[in-house]
Structure formats: C-alpha cells, structure tokens
Design a protein around this nucleic acid. Structure first.
Lengths: 149, 149
DNA sequence: CCAGAAATTGAAATTCACTTTCATGTTATC
DNA sequence: GATAACATGAAAGTGAATTTCAATTTCTGG
C-alpha cells in the first residue's frame, strides 16, 4: 500500500508532475476503500482527515489514476459514475437493484466465450464490461417470503 | 410497422393518453432508424420532415417507449445515452472504439453461463448488459497494416 | 535558505445531458 | 363547438463533470 503510493508518486514525477498532500490523501483513501466509490463519497471520506480538499481534486486524482491504469471508471446506472481500483484482475458485477449491493465475480468461461464471439466478428477486443442487474440473495428472499406468506 | 405504431397508440390511449402528431413522427423515425440513436440524432432526423418538434418531445417519447417496453436505454460511455428498439430479442454489443461502429450479437451460451454465475451467488437476475470494446475488423486491419508495413 | 519556475489546488463559473415548469396548442368527448 | 385533459416546446432548473484562474505548494538551483 505504502509501496503502491510511492510507486504511483514516482510515476507522476517521472512524467513531470509534483508531489501533493491532497492527492496523496485522496489516493490513500481510494485504495483503502476497496469498493466502488463515487467522487462525492470519496470526497466526504477524505475530508474526515483532510477537510480542505476540494471535489475538483478528487475528480482530477481519480481521472489521473484511471489514465495511469490504477483505477477503472464504472457505471451502475445511478447517474454518477463510480471508480474502482484496478489492482485485482478483471472482474464483472452483480448489481442488486433493491439494496444497491454490488458483488464482484470472475468467470474465465464467460471470458473465453466472449473471445470466441469477438473472433467470429473479426473484432479485436481491448476491454469489456458485464453487469448483471437483479436481486441479491437477501432481497430475493425477502420478496419471495412476501409472495409466499 | 404501421401496425406497430397503431398498437402503441392504442396502448397509450388505453392508459389515458391522447394521440399526437409529434409523437407519431418521433416513433416512426425511431423504429425506422433501426440502430442505436441519441436523442440529439433522432431530433435532427425527425426535424427533416417535422421541423417544429422539440428535443423535449423526443426525450419524453423515448422514455415513454422505454417504459412501455418498446425501447431500451443503452450506454456506450459516450456521455449521452442511446435508445434502441426492443422489438428483436435480447442482444449484446461490440463497440469499436476507433470508428464507433456497434455490432450486435447474441450468444445463448454466454447467457447460460451468466445464469450459472448468478445462481452460484443466490442472485436473481432481471437484466444484464454486456459491452465489448475494441477494434472492428476494418479498424483492426488498418492498424495491423500500419504495424507490418 | 531563498527566489523563481512550474505544477497543484479549490472556489466559482461553465458545460452538457437531462428534467421540470408552465403557458399555449391539440385532442377527445359530450 | 365548448370544455376538460393531455401534449408540446421554450425556457428555466438540476446535477454531474470540466474548465478557469488567482493563490498556494512543490521543486530546483543558486
């Protein structure tokens, strides 16, 4: 973690940038969060220990991380986009439309079939996103319970 | 087509709505378009034969069609959402990031695997979307050509 | 340690897609 | 054809994301 932040900082400096405390605070909170955060959520979190940080800096830092490949922009159709760390390997999402829970999953078989499909169309894939919307176990149980009793 | 528009009109009237020429024009252009249109694109198209139509009406009509199940909102990450007719069965998208071409595809095997994944998580799916980004055959060939000679 | 150059910051202004408002125009009904 | 309800569209309003710009911070090299 400390190591990661140092590495990113070094990369930024190599590209002609300079260190900054605000950005460091944003990055640390972001990677510590672990899940999918909106700019607004992350701003509030950072402000707990760094009240002076502006929304703009959070926007800029996340865009920067995305450009550098350390973060991904994701969109669950809520109106505001979310960012997730890109340190783990690729995964897709189950999004509960009732409670908002997001479950990550990996499925190499689906990926393989996707490769087949793209090949069939002479398409060279660079990225993909798969989101499945529905009810998580808890919400499904609740609605089933209501229906049956 | 004529038949479809009549049917939709009848449904609207059954729900307490009234007929309208603007809306009819929007719907006809929309279903005739066949592909994924933005509100802006569709507005411009409708105005060719119906100059007085406002953007708002296009927004409202597409939202209405989506609510009635005749259209789907899709998002290729361009900033503006697109609408596609929902008359054909479900399909997913290959989006070329170079030229913007969108290829539709269906893959029952992928769907089956998706069902397996959701079941494994006790998740009850209601919808999903799969977008694969990359280079279409033409753009891939072009960049391959450049690379090899 | 200091001065100057360059990047970073954040409040405010701006943009852009989308939605809401509301006075006016249309449509259906009696 | 009067009237009640719906549809329309211009303009105003939202809200997320971006840009602007003066002030601040960071780095470099005397």
């Amino acid at each position: 973690m400390e190591r990661l932040l140092l590495r990113i900082d070094r990369e930024i400096i190599a590209a002609g940038g300079k260190r900054s405390k605000s950005r460091a605070a944003v990055m640390e909170r972001f990677f510590r969060a672990g899940d999918h955060v909106t700019v607004d959520e992350l701003t509030r979190a950072v402000r707990k220990t760094f009240p002076r940080v502006g929304t703009v800096t959070v926007y800029r830092t996340l865009k920067l991380l995305a450009r550098m490949g350390y973060a991904n922009e994701v969109d669950f159709g809520e109106g505001a986009r979310r960012y997730e760390s890109n340190l783990d390997s690729h995964h897709d999402h189950l999004v509960c439309t009732a409670c908002g829970t997001v479950i990550e999953f990996k499925d190499p078989d689906i990926e393989k079939l996707q490769d087949l499909v793209t090949r069939r169309h002479g398409f060279r894939p660079t990225a993909h996103r798969l989101e499945i919307f529905g009810l998580c176990r808890k919400c499904a149980d609740r609605s089933a319970g209501r229906r049956q009793g």
